[in-house]
Amino acid sequence: MSLRNAFALVFGFVAAHAHAITVTDDSGAAVTLAKPAERVVSLAPHVTELLFAAGGGARIVGAVTYSDYPKQAQTIPRVGDNRALDLERIVALHPDLIVVWRHGNAARQMDRLQALGVPIYFSEPKHLDDIATSIDKLGALLSTREEARASSNAFTRDIAQLRARYAERPRVSVFYQVWDDPLMTLNRDNVFDEVIGLCGGVNVFAAEKTRVPTLSTEAVLAANPEAIVTSTPGATKPDRPLPALERWQRWTSMTAVARGNLFGIDGDLINRPTPRLALGAAQLCRDLEIARERRAKN
C-alpha cells in the first residue's frame, strides 16, 4: 500500500468517526452513535416524556403502552408494555436507538434486544439532578442540544425555586403510600424521597433496606406520620374522597388522620422522573404547608 493510499485510508476512518456521539447512560455504560438518532424506540412512558423534552418527539417511531404525554405521544405506534415487548415490530421499525427503563422492562427480553445490534440507552433517573442530565444526554444523542438545554434549565430552575422556598420549613413526617394492598412504600433510594425532603418533609420509611418495602398497618401506626400521601389517577380535589387512603380513617389517633392530612397527587406527576415532577413537587410542597398550618389548630 502506498503512503498516499494509507493516508487516505486513515483520513477516511477519522472523518467517519469525527462526528460520533458518546454519552454515558444510567447503567454506567457508554452509548455511541455514528450520527444523531433519527428513529428512536421508547420502552417506558417516562422515556417518551424525556425524549419530547429533549426535542426528539418527532423521531420516536415506537413507544410502549401509557406513553401518553404530551398529547402527540398518544399517536405513536405501540410496541408492547413493561411486561412484554413486540420484538418483531421493533425490528420492523428499523430504529437506530432504543431507550429502555433499566428496571422496568422485562429482563428476559433485554438480551434479545441487545442481540439486535441497535444502540441501547438505559434510563433510570434516581435523583432530581439526573432528570436534567438525562434530557441533556438524550439531546446530545439526537443532536437537539439547544432545545434539550432549554428544557433541562427550566426544570432545574423550577426545582431550585421550590427548594429555596420550602426546604428550610419546619419538618413534616410523611408516609408515601405507593400501593394499598399489599401496603407498600419507598425508601430513600428513589427520586420521590428527594422531593419529600425538598418540601421540608421526612420520609418515615427512608431507612428501609428494600427499595419498595411491603409494610404492615402496625408499622405505619408506630411511625405515626403527620401526613400520608398517595398517587391518584388524575388531579384530586380537596373535597374528593381518596379510596386508597380510606383504610386509615379508623385510626383516629394517628396524627395524619386526626388532622385530616391525607393527600392525593396525580400519579403521573410524582411517579415519572420527568420535567413534570416539578409540578408534582409543587403540589406536595403545598400539601405539607397545609399540614403545618393545621398544627396551630390542634
Rank of each mutant, 00 (worst) to 15 (best):
L138T: 07
R89D: 00
G62D: 00
F155C: 10
V40Y: 04
P119L: 10
T236F: 05
V91G: 10
E49Q: 08
A34M: 14
L9R: 12
E194K: 08
Y66Q: 11
P241D: 07
A244W: 06
I159T: 02
T185Q: 01
A34D: 15
F175G: 01
A29N: 07
N153Q: 15
E38V: 15
F52L: 09
V14M: 14
L277T: 04
R39P: 00
A92M: 03
M254R: 07
F263L: 06
P213F: 03
P233F: 12
N153Y: 15
N203L: 03
M110K: 06
A58C: 10
G234M: 02
T255W: 09
L183D: 07
A132M: 12
I60D: 00
G55T: 06
V204F: 02
T274K: 08
K297D: 12
L128C: 10
L215Y: 03
G260M: 09
H127A: 13
P70G: 08
A34E: 15
A207D: 13
L93C: 02
A132L: 14
E208H: 06
R286M: 02
L138D: 04
A92D: 02
E246G: 14
V195D: 02
D239N: 10
A167Y: 07
A207R: 15
F175R: 00
A150P: 14
R157Y: 14
A164D: 11
T22L: 06
R247K: 14
V61G: 01
N5C: 15
A63S: 05
F175H: 03
E168I: 04
A58R: 13
Q74F: 06
G56C: 08
K297A: 13
L128N: 10
